[in-house]
Computed example of a mutant assay.
Amino acid sequence: MRAPLPASGDLIQVTRTASVQFIRPIRFRVIRVLDWPTYDGWIWLEGYQLNARGEAVARRSIFVQPAGLVIQRRTAPVPPGRPRSSMRT
């Protein structure tokens, strides 16, 4: 059974379990899962690294194992046929 992939908008914690490059854990807001070719069990994520206050400090693409990610908050799913946001002018 594979670990669930994060979705756009999810807040995750990335630790050494996800990839050895993360000696210190980081908080990460997912923009999207990239469809770049990779090894089995690994994915590329695009998103923002967050500071302690939850503010974006860097936009990054990271190479991780989904099984090692800690999903802190999932985005609520949008009901089918309903737009994510509406812009009014």
Rank of each mutant, 00 (worst) to 15 (best):
Q49F: 09
P6E: 05
Q21G: 09
T17P: 00
A52Q: 15
Y48F: 15
A18I: 03
R60L: 15
Q72K: 13
N51Q: 14
N51T: 14
G41N: 02
N51A: 12
V33K: 08
P79N: 01
W36M: 14
S61K: 12
S85M: 03
I23F: 07
L69I: 05
A58D: 14
T15E: 07
G47C: 13
T75P: 00
W42H: 13
I71S: 00
E55N: 15
A76G: 00
A56K: 07
V78S: 01
R16A: 14
A7M: 05
P25M: 01
R2L: 12
E55Y: 05
G41T: 03
R2S: 12
R24G: 04
Q13T: 09
T75N: 04
L34I: 13
Q49P: 11
Q13L: 13
I43S: 06
A52S: 15
V57I: 15
V78K: 02
S19R: 02
I12S: 01
Q72S: 06
G54H: 07
I71L: 02
T17H: 09
G81D: 02
V57W: 11
R16V: 15
Q13I: 03
P6M: 01
S61M: 03
T89W: 12
R88C: 02
W42M: 12
L50H: 08
G81L: 06
V78F: 00
G9T: 12
D35G: 13
L50A: 07
Q49S: 13
R59T: 02
L69T: 06
P25G: 01
P66G: 08
I26A: 06
V20W: 02
I23Q: 08
R24T: 11
A76H: 01
S19L: 06
Q13S: 11
Q49V: 14
I62C: 08
Q72Y: 07
Q21Y: 08
D35S: 14
P83Q: 09
G47R: 02
A18Q: 06
Y48A: 10
A67L: 14
